[in-house]
């Protein structure tokens, strides 16, 4: 259980499952959350190394979660991977996130990119 923690925020259960698989391949501990509000509650209690964030969530926009992460000092080291089908929004938020991936995303690609975001100390 020394692996760093990855929080996957994705409302589509199939994709959440797939993303979790990919992150696990990149040796992350994973936790999936399917709505924004639960995600914010969870983030208040944990410091994930990586957050895989979908922008289109049922209760609140993914950008709100991003704003929260970026405003929280505690989460300074948290890397955010934006995985979305909305190219327009993704482009707007490009500078605030560590990585932008447009759906459909290859598992291998996601896993490879995620592994690059692993904290150095942990390797």
């Amino acid at each position: 259980m020394n692996n760093p923690l990855a929080l996957i925020i994705e409302d589509d259960s199939k994709l959440a499952y797939l993303f979790a698989e990919a992150l696990q391949m990149a040796e992350f501990e994973t936790e999936t959350i399917q709505n924004g509000r639960s995600a914010l509650e969870r983030l208040a209690l944990m410091m994930p190394a990586v957050v895989v964030l979908d922008l289109h969530l049922p209760d609140l926009p993914g950008s709100d979660i991003l704003t929260y992460i970026r405003s929280e000092k505690r989460l300074n080291n948290t890397r955010v991977m934006l995985v979305t089908a909305d190219a327009l929004k993704a482009e707007q938020l490009r500078n605030e996130v560590d990585l932008v991936l447009l759906k459909p995303v290859s598992l291998i690609q996601l896993s490879t990119l995620a592994s690059r975001l692993r904290p150095l100390t942990m390797t």
């Binding site: 589509d12 994709l15 797939l18 698989e21 089908a85 909305d86 759906k103 459909p104």
Partner: peptide, 18 residues
């Protein structure tokens, strides 16, 4: 539309890779 098409497409791609 793009979103709606990309989501199942992503699932197809993901599971196929798995």
């Amino acid at each position: 539309v793009s979103h709606e098409l990309r989501t199942p497409l992503n699932a197809i791609l993901g599971f196929a890779e798995l």
